Simulated scan of single mutants.
Amino acid sequence: MPMSELIIETARLLMRPPQMEDFEDLYEMWSDAEVIRHVTGYPLTREDVWSRLLRSFGHWAAMGFGHWVVTEKANGSFVGEVGFVQYKRGISAEFDRAPEIGWMLARRAQRLGYASEAVDAALHWADVRWPGSDTVCIISPENVESLRLGDKFRYRVDHEGIYKQKPILVCRRATQHQE
Protein backbone atom coordinates (compact mmCIF):
# COMPACT_ATOMS: atom_id res chain seq x y z
CA MET A 1 0.00 0.00 0.00
CA PRO A 2 1.47 3.39 -0.93
CA MET A 3 2.52 5.51 2.05
CA SER A 4 0.13 8.28 0.96
CA GLU A 5 -2.80 5.92 1.64
CA LEU A 6 -1.57 5.43 5.20
CA ILE A 7 -1.34 9.12 6.10
CA ILE A 8 -4.41 10.90 7.41
CA GLU A 9 -4.77 14.65 7.77
CA THR A 10 -7.50 16.36 9.77
CA ALA A 11 -8.07 20.05 10.44
CA ARG A 12 -5.39 20.09 13.17
CA LEU A 13 -3.65 16.71 13.06
CA LEU A 14 -1.35 14.57 10.98
CA MET A 15 -1.60 10.80 11.50
CA ARG A 16 1.10 8.55 10.05
CA PRO A 17 2.62 5.14 10.68
CA PRO A 18 5.35 5.25 13.35
CA GLN A 19 9.01 5.84 12.65
CA MET A 20 12.10 5.03 14.71
CA GLU A 21 12.36 8.71 15.61
CA ASP A 22 9.05 8.48 17.51
CA PHE A 23 10.55 6.31 20.25
CA GLU A 24 11.33 9.06 22.79
CA ASP A 25 7.87 10.64 22.47
CA LEU A 26 6.21 7.24 22.80
CA TYR A 27 8.38 6.41 25.78
CA GLU A 28 7.49 9.67 27.51
CA MET A 29 3.77 8.96 27.01
CA TRP A 30 3.81 5.25 27.95
CA SER A 31 6.00 5.84 31.00
CA ASP A 32 3.72 8.56 32.41
CA ALA A 33 1.90 6.85 35.29
CA GLU A 34 -1.03 9.26 35.11
CA VAL A 35 -1.56 8.74 31.37
CA ILE A 36 -1.50 4.93 31.44
CA ARG A 37 -3.18 4.30 34.81
CA HIS A 38 -6.30 2.78 33.19
CA VAL A 39 -4.43 0.79 30.54
CA THR A 40 -1.45 -1.00 31.99
CA GLY A 41 -1.69 0.36 35.51
CA TYR A 42 2.08 0.86 35.63
CA PRO A 43 4.61 2.91 33.63
CA LEU A 44 6.25 1.03 30.79
CA THR A 45 10.01 0.65 30.64
CA ARG A 46 12.14 1.69 27.69
CA GLU A 47 12.32 -1.98 26.73
CA ASP A 48 8.51 -2.30 26.86
CA VAL A 49 8.02 0.76 24.67
CA TRP A 50 10.68 -0.42 22.23
CA SER A 51 8.79 -3.72 21.90
CA ARG A 52 5.52 -1.83 21.34
CA LEU A 53 7.15 0.24 18.61
CA LEU A 54 8.52 -2.85 16.86
CA ARG A 55 5.13 -4.55 17.18
CA SER A 56 3.56 -1.51 15.56
CA PHE A 57 6.02 -1.72 12.63
CA GLY A 58 5.05 -5.37 12.28
CA HIS A 59 1.35 -4.61 12.22
CA TRP A 60 1.78 -2.15 9.38
CA ALA A 61 4.09 -4.47 7.43
CA ALA A 62 2.09 -7.68 7.88
CA MET A 63 -1.49 -6.44 8.07
CA GLY A 64 -1.57 -3.04 6.37
CA PHE A 65 -2.86 -1.29 9.47
CA GLY A 66 -1.68 -0.39 12.95
CA HIS A 67 -1.35 2.60 15.24
CA TRP A 68 -0.77 5.99 13.71
CA VAL A 69 1.50 8.44 15.46
CA VAL A 70 -0.54 11.62 15.82
CA THR A 71 1.11 15.03 15.67
CA GLU A 72 -0.11 18.61 15.50
CA LYS A 73 -0.03 19.86 11.90
CA ALA A 74 0.86 23.38 12.95
CA ASN A 75 4.11 22.56 14.75
CA GLY A 76 4.73 18.80 14.56
CA SER A 77 4.28 18.32 18.32
CA PHE A 78 3.59 14.76 19.41
CA VAL A 79 -0.04 14.15 20.41
CA GLY A 80 -0.21 10.38 20.88
CA GLU A 81 -1.23 7.29 18.97
CA VAL A 82 -4.52 6.06 17.60
CA GLY A 83 -5.19 3.06 15.42
CA PHE A 84 -6.21 -0.52 14.88
CA VAL A 85 -4.58 -3.78 15.92
CA GLN A 86 -5.27 -7.48 16.16
CA TYR A 87 -3.40 -8.69 19.22
CA LYS A 88 -5.12 -12.09 19.50
CA ARG A 89 -5.81 -11.33 23.17
CA GLY A 90 -7.91 -14.46 23.66
CA ILE A 91 -10.91 -12.48 24.91
CA SER A 92 -13.11 -14.37 22.44
CA ALA A 93 -12.78 -15.72 18.91
CA GLU A 94 -15.16 -13.02 17.67
CA PHE A 95 -13.16 -10.27 19.39
CA ASP A 96 -9.87 -11.57 18.04
CA ARG A 97 -11.21 -11.50 14.44
CA ALA A 98 -12.35 -7.86 14.55
CA PRO A 99 -10.06 -4.86 14.17
CA GLU A 100 -9.48 -3.42 17.65
CA ILE A 101 -9.22 0.34 17.96
CA GLY A 102 -7.11 1.98 20.62
CA TRP A 103 -6.17 5.52 21.55
CA MET A 104 -3.59 7.04 23.88
CA LEU A 105 -2.70 10.71 24.13
CA ALA A 106 0.22 12.36 25.85
CA ARG A 107 -0.78 14.31 28.94
CA ARG A 108 -0.12 17.70 27.31
CA ALA A 109 -2.46 16.79 24.42
CA GLN A 110 -5.45 15.69 26.49
CA ARG A 111 -8.69 17.64 26.80
CA LEU A 112 -8.09 19.58 23.59
CA GLY A 113 -10.45 17.58 21.37
CA TYR A 114 -7.56 15.76 19.70
CA ALA A 115 -8.78 12.30 20.70
CA SER A 116 -12.18 12.86 19.09
CA GLU A 117 -10.60 14.30 15.96
CA ALA A 118 -8.13 11.42 15.59
CA VAL A 119 -10.61 8.64 16.41
CA ASP A 120 -13.12 10.11 13.96
CA ALA A 121 -10.48 10.16 11.22
CA ALA A 122 -9.34 6.61 12.03
CA LEU A 123 -12.91 5.33 11.90
CA HIS A 124 -13.54 7.00 8.54
CA TRP A 125 -10.39 5.24 7.26
CA ALA A 126 -11.63 1.93 8.70
CA ASP A 127 -15.12 2.32 7.24
CA VAL A 128 -13.59 2.64 3.77
CA ARG A 129 -11.11 -0.19 4.33
CA TRP A 130 -13.53 -2.61 6.04
CA PRO A 131 -17.02 -1.60 4.90
CA GLY A 132 -19.72 -3.36 6.88
CA SER A 133 -17.30 -4.66 9.52
CA ASP A 134 -17.59 -4.13 13.24
CA THR A 135 -14.65 -2.85 15.25
CA VAL A 136 -14.00 -3.51 18.94
CA CYS A 137 -12.12 -2.07 21.88
CA ILE A 138 -11.52 -2.78 25.54
CA ILE A 139 -11.84 -0.07 28.17
CA SER A 140 -11.33 -0.11 31.91
CA PRO A 141 -14.67 0.45 33.70
CA GLU A 142 -12.93 3.25 35.64
CA ASN A 143 -11.80 5.12 32.52
CA VAL A 144 -14.70 7.54 32.28
CA GLU A 145 -13.03 9.69 29.60
CA SER A 146 -12.43 6.73 27.26
CA LEU A 147 -15.93 5.37 27.87
CA ARG A 148 -17.33 8.78 26.92
CA LEU A 149 -15.16 8.89 23.79
CA GLY A 150 -16.15 5.36 22.81
CA ASP A 151 -19.82 6.17 23.32
CA LYS A 152 -19.49 9.24 21.09
CA PHE A 153 -18.42 6.91 18.27
CA ARG A 154 -21.13 4.26 18.91
CA TYR A 155 -18.97 1.82 20.90
CA ARG A 156 -21.41 -0.03 23.13
CA VAL A 157 -20.55 -2.40 25.94
CA ASP A 158 -20.91 -5.92 24.58
CA HIS A 159 -19.91 -7.62 27.83
CA GLU A 160 -17.73 -7.36 30.89
CA GLY A 161 -14.61 -9.44 31.27
CA ILE A 162 -11.20 -9.85 32.80
CA TYR A 163 -7.99 -9.23 30.88
CA LYS A 164 -4.60 -9.66 32.54
CA GLN A 165 -6.36 -9.95 35.89
CA LYS A 166 -8.12 -6.59 35.51
CA PRO A 167 -11.79 -5.87 34.84
CA ILE A 168 -12.56 -4.63 31.32
CA LEU A 169 -15.55 -3.65 29.28
CA VAL A 170 -15.53 -5.21 25.83
CA CYS A 171 -17.10 -2.70 23.46
CA ARG A 172 -18.27 -3.07 19.89
CA ARG A 173 -19.06 -0.54 17.20
CA ALA A 174 -21.60 -2.22 15.00
CA THR A 175 -21.93 -1.21 11.40
CA GLN A 176 -24.87 1.08 10.81
CA HIS A 177 -27.00 -1.51 9.05
CA GLN A 178 -26.81 -3.78 12.11
CA GLU A 179 -27.92 -1.20 14.68
Results as ranks from 00 to 15, higher is better:
38 H>L: 05
143 N>G: 02
123 L>D: 01
25 D>W: 08
63 M>L: 15
97 R>H: 09
44 L>D: 07
99 P>M: 07
9 E>L: 14
26 L>R: 01
121 A>Q: 07
145 E>F: 10
167 P>S: 13
15 M>A: 07
148 R>P: 03
141 P>S: 07
54 L>C: 12
21 E>D: 12
9 E>R: 15
24 E>D: 15
36 I>V: 15
85 V>D: 05
177 H>T: 11
151 D>A: 14
37 R>F: 05
14 L>H: 09
64 G>C: 10
69 V>H: 02
158 D>S: 14
142 E>W: 06
60 W>P: 00
95 F>K: 05
151 D>T: 12
27 Y>I: 08
39 V>I: 11
8 I>N: 06
31 S>K: 05
123 L>W: 11
133 S>H: 14
20 M>F: 14
80 G>C: 01
95 F>L: 09
88 K>P: 00
92 S>Y: 03
89 R>L: 13
81 E>I: 06
109 A>T: 04
174 A>W: 08
134 D>G: 03
36 I>M: 08
111 R>K: 15
9 E>T: 07
143 N>C: 07
28 E>T: 11
161 G>K: 09
128 V>W: 11
87 Y>W: 14
13 L>Y: 04
137 C>E: 01
126 A>K: 11
76 G>A: 02
71 T>V: 12
25 D>N: 13
44 L>F: 01
1 M>V: 12
101 I>V: 13
74 A>C: 10
87 Y>C: 12
99 P>I: 04
87 Y>F: 14
38 H>M: 09
53 L>Q: 01
137 C>K: 04
175 T>E: 15
86 Q>C: 11
53 L>T: 00
91 I>R: 09
133 S>Q: 13
72 E>S: 13
54 L>V: 03
143 N>F: 10
94 E>H: 13
94 E>A: 15
56 S>C: 10
139 I>C: 06
156 R>V: 11
63 M>G: 06
76 G>L: 00
20 M>S: 15
119 V>A: 05
